[in-house]
Nucleic acid binder design. Sequence first.
DNA 1: CGGGCTAGTGTACAACTGACACTAATCCTG
DNA 2: CAGGATTAGTGTCAGTTGTACACTAGCCCG
Lengths: 251, 251
Amino acid sequence: MNEFNEYFKSAFTVDNVIFGFDEGDLKVLLIKRGEEPYQGKWALPGYFVYPNEDLDMAAKRVLEQLTGLRNVFLEQVKTFGAVNRHPFGRVITVAYFSLIKISYYTIQPSSIARKAQWHSVSKVKDLAFDHDEILRACFHRLKWLVRTRPVGFELLPPKFTLTELQHLYEAILETKLDKRNFRKKILSMDLLVDLDETQEGVAHRPARLYQFDRKRYEELLLDGFSFELKESRRKEPPQSKRGKREIASSN
Amino acid sequence: MNEFNEYFKSAFTVDNVIFGFDEGDLKVLLIKRGEEPYQGKWALPGYFVYPNEDLDMAAKRVLEQLTGLRNVFLEQVKTFGAVNRHPFGRVITVAYFSLIKISYYTIQPSSIARKAQWHSVSKVKDLAFDHDEILRACFHRLKWLVRTRPVGFELLPPKFTLTELQHLYEAILETKLDKRNFRKKILSMDLLVDLDETQEGVAHRPARLYQFDRKRYEELLLDGFSFELKESRRKEPPQSKRGKREIASSN
DNA sequence: CGGGCTAGTGTACAACTGACACTAATCCTG
DNA sequence: CAGGATTAGTGTCAGTTGTACACTAGCCCG
């Protein structure tokens, strides 16, 4: 056993990429570092794993201290262990990502949490450590996840419109989707419950509100869920007014 | 910096799930442990990560010491860090998996390698440490991978028959596939080169030999590859001889 | 009450999927 | 050397799914 002692000199941490969705934009929760190294830079929330703690527990702890939330989607993504990624010594970090409803998030009294802020995923750059790379890896995983499991559940408020759901998919997949095809596909999964309510206080025709059907959701996880829709090829603002007219729908 | 010293007391290792394919069966390379803990048990090949080594480097080193192979498919899968998973102290392990052509594998002179042996994935159980769980996780990842990338390349010998390729897919996916549909699908990808050679020394009609087209393979990786075929529902040995007759193909 | 805005809706064509059975070619055996 | 054993190899049709595409409906606001 002594022959291995030289190896017991490293530390490991967890870092958590916390995704949320708001204002049609995919967001990630970052912390402004108050101390060295990388003081003043934005970083992913994370901490050392305690000696008596499993990895998943550590990730949950970090998430809860920051957001007050438990029982949310949380999954290990990848481990980063480049030799010099941390100036304090050999530290490898296990990256997790979680999906939360921003509307449920409340600022926690802990000192870390007071330095936290949501950032648009597409605009984030120049994070501390190798966190840019970690964020990219987690975003990539989220993109994959969205095809494999009905992800909206985790990120949207309990009641939402189909357009909101479509915007979420578009934000994650970084494409535009065709409205009619998207609706056809989503509704055919029998996953949404029509609440027979509509939006209020919007300056246009109000949209119907839906919620996810948790039971059906779990069925789909088992049966295999797969979401595939090509990017909409619709030309943006029609430059010619003279395209073939579509026959008006009559149903 | 001193405040963190208590965390720098752990070690980490890599474990490598090395898959091969032989005799119609998916295999994994295991080592019989010569020392405690778990002496005499089969285990995944792995070792401590050296202080000056990145994770991927460590995984490559383990693979090469064992098989003599470099430049093979090798990917990180998941990190396992349960508090008591290792009796020597806090050791977390980063699991990798690799795909190799068994025919290229040669027993290396190193002492570890002499204790290595191929095992059918479906029969493996009761491994040392948490290696059963690690193997399951890697097999699961391989199942996913096979839908996403033309995996045969990595596991089959350079020349192979369509039936061998089909058996490989069946072994990984743990299903039966329909012969005609499988062939149609694979050939339509334009990924295989017909070598205009046939098997020799088989006691039946010899099959044509194919090889992968590396260039087309790389195109597919970029363009997005997706393999989906339902399990064949063909009834095994036809119990009734009186099913509807299929019209004989006339082309 | 008209303009601005977003919601909401159907169809036709193309592409893909999946079910399904026999003949061809080789070796082996008696 | 004929017949049996064994695996290779091949096409079509029907049903489903994917995709392109444009207008009317309903609300608020000025």
